Amino acid sequence: MAEHARILLDGLPGAGTLPVALRIARGLVGEDGVIGVVDTQRGAAARYADEHRFLHLRVDSCSPKAMPDIVMAAVAAGVDCLIVDTFTSFWSGRDGLLMLVDQHRKSPTQSGWAEARPYEQAMMDALLDYPGHIIATLRVRSEIAVGADDTGRPSPWKVALKPDHRDGLEYDFQVAASLGLDGALTITSTCVEDVLDLQLGAVHAKPGEEFGQQLAAWLGQGVVEPTLRDYLARCAAPDATSAELFALAEQVQARGMAGLTVRNRQGQTGPLISLLTAKAKWLARREQQTPSPPPAPDTSSLVPPASGVPDYVPDDKMTVAELTLRIAHAPDHDGLNTVEQDLADLKANNVISSNDHGHLYRQVEQRRYNLTHAGAQQ
């Protein structure tokens, strides 16, 4: 199966992990690809905007709970390669996992890890299931060592100890590499065995686009499976059928993607499988209604639908107001069908109450009657 790149890049301060990540990303996505940077360094990534083209998202609170929303924003923006600089911030930074553990630590016997682990897993699932390439950068813990220089005098230098993140993180990535202060990249973990430049211990003096191109070529071999973006596109396609969407729902369930959080056109979020099944059920109801040739217009047979409940009070005023405006300005029956589909999605995902749903459905029927009556008079 073809895959997207998952790269882990660490380096000491001054090694230039982000510029290297940007060059590798350009090699992965090509000249016309879209690169996005999740910046946890107080907007520091913007200083590289003169040399590199990328979308920039500054993140000040690095809670693991935020990662699904970050990923959804990147998907919506069409980002082909997402760089998280630095991923360390989601571990030991402001509101990171270690801080979350401290918040849940109630006693010496209750460490807080049991409560925090699900958030960590949700963060990793969202990141690693991203429908594009991922490059995550890490800070490296260091210490000062003192030795002798060429003249024999004492000389201090920084010695890298280990990346600042949980142990074993590299197992979730295809390639892990370390950057030295001289700019050289050394591969420290890899799943690539048949490409010499991507094997364990390979050194790249000046890593750039060619590194990303080599990795993309190797990963691109094989069958290309649908991505999250592909599923969303088919769900919104005008020629989609209920049978197709039910089959896609079974497919995402089998691939472990059912619980991925997605956002619909109204801004509501929920699992991918709920979106697919809700749309499939709505299409199934539409398909059961066999269309018949329209009869000759007869205004005498047109009876207005029943009026709404006089004492109706909306439960969600903003949603009702927005949809009421859409219904009132629907230019034709196709526009009303779109609103009716959105109402079905909201109801299936329990986003709208039965009270509001019934009221808005009556509004749709009233508008449909008005459009039909206007057409008959013409």
Rank of each mutant, 00 (worst) to 15 (best):
G78N: 10
Q41H: 13
G78L: 04
G43E: 11
R47K: 15
F54Q: 00
I70V: 15
F54H: 02
M72P: 00
D50V: 08
L55V: 03
F87D: 07
S61D: 15
V59S: 02
G36F: 08
R58H: 09
A46M: 13
A45S: 12
L55Q: 05
L55K: 01
S63N: 05
K65Y: 00
G78A: 09
R42N: 14
C62Q: 12
E51A: 14
G36E: 03
I70W: 15
S61G: 13
R53W: 01
A44C: 08
D39G: 04
Y48V: 06
P64M: 06
A49P: 07
I70F: 12
A74W: 08
H56L: 06
V79H: 00
Y48I: 05
M72W: 04
H52C: 00
V59P: 00
A77I: 06
P68F: 14
G43V: 10
G43M: 13
V75N: 06
C81A: 14
V75R: 15
D60M: 11
L82R: 06
D50F: 12
A46N: 08
S63P: 05
T88Y: 14
D60K: 08
L57V: 09
R58D: 10
C62N: 14
A74I: 08
A44I: 08
V84L: 13
R53N: 04
D69P: 02
V84A: 09
K65Q: 06
D80V: 07
D39N: 10
F87I: 10
T86I: 10
R42S: 13
D50E: 15
A46I: 05
T40F: 09
A76T: 14
G43C: 12
H56V: 01
V37D: 00
V79E: 02
F87S: 07
R53D: 04
E51L: 07
S89T: 10
M67C: 09
F54Y: 14
A49K: 13
D85G: 09
C62P: 03
A77N: 10
F54V: 00
D80A: 03
P64Q: 08
P64H: 07
F87R: 12
A44N: 13
L82N: 06
S89Y: 14
A76E: 15
D39R: 01
V84I: 15
S61R: 15
V84C: 07
I70K: 09
R58A: 10
L82V: 11
A74Y: 09
F54R: 01
V38I: 15
A73P: 03
M67P: 10
D60Y: 12
P64Y: 05
V37N: 02
C62K: 06
S89W: 11
V71T: 06
E51I: 04
A77F: 08
R53Q: 07
V59T: 01
D80C: 05
T88V: 11
H56T: 03
A46H: 08
D85E: 12
F54C: 01
A74M: 14
V84M: 11
D69H: 15
A73Y: 03
A44L: 13
I83A: 04
A46F: 03
V79G: 01
V84E: 04
I83M: 07
K65L: 00
P64E: 07
P68Q: 12
A77G: 05
D80Q: 07
A66Q: 09
V37L: 06
G36T: 06
Y48T: 03
L57T: 09
A49N: 03
L55A: 04
L57K: 07
V38W: 02
A73H: 10
D80L: 05
H52L: 01
A66T: 09
S61Q: 15
G78H: 09
